[in-house]
Computed example of a mutant assay.
Amino acid sequence: MGRVAPAQVRRITCVGAGVIGGGWVAYFLAHGYAVTAWDPGPDAESRLRHLVEAAWPALSEIGLADGASPDNLAVAPDLASAVDGTDFVQESAPEDLDLKIRLLGDIDAVTAPEIVVSSSTSGYGMSEMQVACAHPERTVVAHPFNPPYLIPLVEVVGGKATDPEVVEWTSEFFEHAGKAVITMDREVPGFVANRLQEALWREALHMVAHGEATVEQIDRAITEGPGLRWASQGPMLTFHLAGGQGGMTHMLDHFGPSLLSPWTRLDAPELTPRLRSDVVAGCEAEAQGRSIDDLVAERDHSLIAILRALGRA
């Protein structure tokens, strides 16, 4: 039997039912899938059903798929029965590499070889985790963000032994399931969003440690400032617009020397001609033909909507 098309997935197995695994269960249920969960922990079923019940009002508010119901959740007594007849497996065990290796090997051993096995890991690469699998070609990372039932982003990336078609299938599945997908070109420690969060987190800790800012000042600096802009256009397009009509080209040429200023404790990369060209070209590609004026109008419209939603305008 071959692998079903991404849009034909009907039954999903979630292995691990903690905060992330339970969040996945709630998300998949809300999108009309039948979900079978397995977690060896004590009281796992009661904790999982409580999490789904707590998440359901928010999911109902943003809209449920036809037929979506918590009643479509089954909790299996063992791993083999959990994956029996499944179309897709999402693993969300704790972040322990040895545990991940053993568990993925166990899942691989009892799951039909055509079924994609995806991990929610937030730090390990699939190349590290797939080493005990007899069919590592069908293992892939789909890294979500908490809570998975509300935050759209999922980062998809394979390991050294992963079939590229599996990466493509997984990205298509999550897009069909309503997620905003970044299909990564290669494995990067910490993935994309975590790397960016970590840089901000480390600088924030440095500022507190040196008495340069309080916790409240740091949080307000983001929620009342760049965080509002990032919600609609992200840091790269934000700097693209900071260059005025000259866009990122002017931004890099004008502010590039400040990369060497001691503003952060992070080492700045050298602004080589290639890096400059890649960043400029990336902004032009993301703009998709929209002018600076177009992007400014879109940004302002989004900022007004965000401020109104937060009760600040």
Rank of each mutant, 00 (worst) to 15 (best):
G2S: 15
G2L: 10
A7D: 08
C14K: 05
A17W: 02
G21W: 13
W24F: 14
Y27M: 00
D39F: 05
D39Q: 11
P40S: 13
R47F: 03
L51C: 09
A55F: 10
I62Y: 07
L64Y: 11
P70S: 11
A74G: 12
A76H: 00
S81G: 01
S81N: 09
D87T: 04
F88R: 15
E95P: 04
D98P: 03
D98C: 07
D98L: 03
D98M: 11
D98V: 03
R102S: 14
S119V: 08
S120F: 09
G123S: 10
G123Y: 00
G125S: 12
T139Q: 07
P144S: 07
P148D: 11
I151N: 07
P152N: 04
L153C: 01
F173Y: 12
E175V: 12
I182T: 15
R186N: 00
E187M: 09
V188P: 06
F191W: 02
V192R: 07
L196Q: 08
W201Q: 06
R202Q: 08
L205K: 13
L205N: 09
L205F: 08
L205Y: 05
H206F: 12
A209V: 00
G211R: 10
G211W: 02
E212Q: 14
R220P: 04
I222D: 02
T223A: 09
R229I: 14
Q233N: 11
G234K: 09
P235K: 09
L237S: 11
F239T: 13
H240T: 02
A242I: 00
G246T: 10
G246Y: 10
G246P: 04
G247D: 10
L252A: 08
F255I: 13
S258A: 12
S258T: 14
W263R: 11
D267I: 02
P269Y: 01
L271A: 14
P273N: 02
R274Y: 09
R276V: 02
V279I: 15
V279A: 11
V279P: 00
V280G: 11
G282M: 13
A285I: 07
E286G: 00
E286Q: 06
A287C: 03
S291C: 00
D294N: 13
E298Q: 14
H301R: 14
I304W: 02
A305V: 04
G311L: 06
